[in-house]
Simulated scan of single mutants.
Amino acid sequence: MVIGTHHGKFHADEVFAVAMLKQLYPDARIVRSREPEVLSQCDIIVDVGRGEYDHHTTDKVFRENGLPYASAGLVWRDFGTKVVRHLGCNEENSDSLTDIIDEKLIQAIDAIDNGIDLEKDARIKGVSELVGGFNPPWNSDADENFAFQDAVSFATQILVNQIKSEIGRIEATAVVKEAYEHRSDKALLVLDTFCPWTDTLFELDVNSEVLYVIFPDRSGEYRLQVVPKSLGSFEARKPLPESWAGTEGDELNALTGADDAVFCHPARFIAGAKSLTTILHMAKLALNE
């Protein structure tokens, strides 16, 4: 397998396109050129050559939402489902996960390369800027092809992390639903394992009943976390008590009447304790305040 793309300054769209293809063809050789006779020897060509994975034409291909594809999106459209299955997603969820990755990551990359400003994806814009930063400076004699390979490695890690994170979120859905349906206190969601809960909770909790979530963390301690007013917001439905803000250990124990409270973040969005008994006690205090 030989993957072709253009030489010269590279951008996030072709870097991510190559990173996607390398998941499926890890031994593929990358050729960077604009010469037709060189590109004609490639099996797949991205972002150059006027082929199916080059968006530099006046006859652009558009998504249903009106956003034009760049090379990353075109490759993801055709290979994304295979990539997510390769990384562990089951067949039942693979199509929906492919769409989720496109919406959360790929569309913003495509928009930037097509000169479209997506205000809602401002956080993702940094990804394109960081990938672009792998280009050698104008006054450097660094090898451009080595820089491109470094950028592909960086993009690969971002892509793989995003996919595995979304697979984890999907697999956690049943855990969150079970805990939600068996709440003893409507305002408190208690999870028996650490897992992603935010998206699923917002789908279930249409009346905004849950104010706090309790879960064990990876260290074996327990956490009490606020539920935000909306996805992506830092504003809580009910912040933790103001008197707890920034306190730790003995000071927090004195405030709560506990003996193994660990901390409360100064922003009052999360607190910790060593035992489930104490974190439940702290949750009740916070709910009653």
Rank of each mutant, 00 (worst) to 15 (best):
M1Y: 13
I3K: 00
K9L: 13
I30K: 09
I30R: 09
V31P: 12
L39D: 02
D59F: 01
F62Y: 15
N65E: 10
S71W: 09
R77C: 01
D78H: 10
V83N: 00
E92W: 03
E92P: 00
N93E: 13
K104C: 11
K104M: 11
A111E: 11
N114M: 11
G115H: 07
D121S: 14
K125H: 15
V127P: 09
D143K: 12
D150W: 02
S153M: 08
S153W: 11
A155T: 00
L159K: 00
I170H: 07
E171C: 09
E181R: 14
H182L: 03
S184I: 13
F194R: 15
C195D: 14
W197E: 04
D199Y: 09
D199S: 10
E203R: 12
Y212W: 11
Y212P: 07
P216S: 13
E221T: 12
Y222T: 03
R223K: 10
Q225L: 08
V227S: 01
K229Y: 07
K229N: 08
S230Q: 08
L231W: 13
E235M: 05
R237D: 03
S243M: 12
D250W: 13
E251C: 03
E251I: 01
L255G: 04
G257P: 07
G257N: 06
D259A: 08
F263N: 03
F263C: 03
C264E: 08
A267F: 09
F269V: 04
G272C: 09
A273Q: 09
K274R: 15
T277Y: 14
